[in-house]
């Protein structure tokens, strides 16, 4: 989608780690710690590819693979540096009655669950047409 609608869309990621999944929270921490080192996309893609193998030692290995400062990364995980941001995203999700992932808001239109690319593409095209009116 980023390729097809290159200059017309912006994608923002909010963290919604399920509390009953062992490594969901630390994986969110890893994504944000990577963001601080300019490696969000590399880590984001790595996490999606490697899930559910997202324990601490695996995450540190992934950080090495994408060329991060591993000491800083590990410190960020262990001190829970990004807990405030993750908890803020979780509170926001609760405030808007969100209980499933992925959930998308496309110009505010709520789309819940995994959907075929064509479905999301259709909504984006509708929104582009609406904005052009």
């Amino acid at each position: 989608m980023l390729i097809e609608f290159k200059d017309s869309i912006r994608i923002i990621f909010k963290q919604y780690p399920y509390k009953y999944r062992d490594h969901a929270y630390i994986a969110s921490q890893a994504a944000l710690a990577a963001r601080d080192q300019g490696k969000f996309w590399e880590m984001h893609n790595m996490l999606l590819q490697k899930s559910p193998r997202l324990d601490r030692s695996s995450l540190i290995q992934y950080a090495k693979e994408i060329g991060m400062d591993v000491d800083r990364f590990a410190k960020d995980l262990d001190t829970k540096k990004h807990k405030p941001q993750i908890d803020r995203d979780l509170k926001l999700a609760m405030d808007i009655d969100l209980y499933n992932t992925p959930t998308f808001f496309i110009n505010g239109r709520k789309v819940v669950g995994n959907r075929p690319y064509e479905y999301l593409r259709g909504i984006v095209k509708e929104e582009l047409a609406r904005v052009k009116k």
């Binding site: 990621f13 992925p102 929104e127």
Partner: peptide
């Protein structure tokens, strides 16, 4: 023109 916000796990 289009902003997509994704909540993910």
């Amino acid at each position: 023109a289009v902003t997509i916000i994704e909540f993910l796990d």
